[in-house]
Amino acid sequence: MALLAFELAGEQTVRHHSGWRINATSNLWLDPWIRYALALQFIAAIAGAQMLVNTVGYVQSTLQLGKTEYGWAMAAFSIDWFRTFQE
């Protein structure tokens, strides 16, 4: 398929679009405010993933409950999280 595309292109130049991605990504990391915001988002993502993993471990091994109870535990976390912003 790729060979056919190159044959159809003939003498036309093939543009690569990866250069602007590398340039844009490096521009994001060069700005200190955006770099700080990206770092905070990365830390929040790690904390969220760790909470999910620890909840699965706690519900299934310590409490010896199943997937349904894990769903109820996650629903309780989300209700509690939503309530903190309502006060």
Rank of each mutant, 00 (worst) to 15 (best):
residue 1 M to N: 06
residue 4 L to G: 13
residue 4 L to Y: 11
residue 5 A to P: 07
residue 5 A to L: 15
residue 5 A to E: 02
residue 6 F to C: 09
residue 11 E to I: 03
residue 12 Q to H: 10
residue 13 T to G: 13
residue 16 H to T: 05
residue 17 H to M: 07
residue 18 S to T: 07
residue 19 G to M: 02
residue 21 R to G: 09
residue 23 N to T: 14
residue 24 A to H: 03
residue 24 A to P: 01
residue 25 T to A: 06
residue 27 N to T: 14
residue 30 L to W: 08
residue 30 L to H: 12
residue 31 D to I: 02
residue 32 P to E: 03
residue 37 A to H: 10
residue 39 A to F: 06
residue 41 Q to M: 15
residue 42 F to C: 00
residue 42 F to G: 05
residue 47 A to F: 01
residue 49 A to Y: 09
residue 49 A to L: 05
residue 49 A to K: 14
residue 50 Q to P: 01
residue 53 V to W: 14
residue 55 T to K: 00
residue 55 T to G: 02
residue 56 V to D: 13
residue 58 Y to G: 09
residue 59 V to P: 01
residue 60 Q to S: 09
residue 63 L to C: 01
residue 63 L to T: 02
residue 64 Q to A: 10
residue 64 Q to I: 01
residue 67 K to Y: 06
residue 68 T to F: 08
residue 68 T to N: 07
residue 68 T to W: 03
residue 69 E to R: 00
residue 69 E to H: 01
residue 71 G to L: 05
residue 71 G to W: 00
residue 72 W to D: 07
residue 72 W to C: 10
residue 73 A to P: 00
residue 74 M to E: 05
residue 74 M to D: 04
residue 75 A to E: 00
residue 76 A to N: 04
residue 76 A to T: 07
residue 77 F to D: 05
residue 78 S to L: 08
residue 80 D to N: 12
residue 82 F to W: 08
residue 84 T to S: 13
residue 86 Q to V: 11
residue 86 Q to D: 13
residue 87 E to K: 15
residue 87 E to L: 08
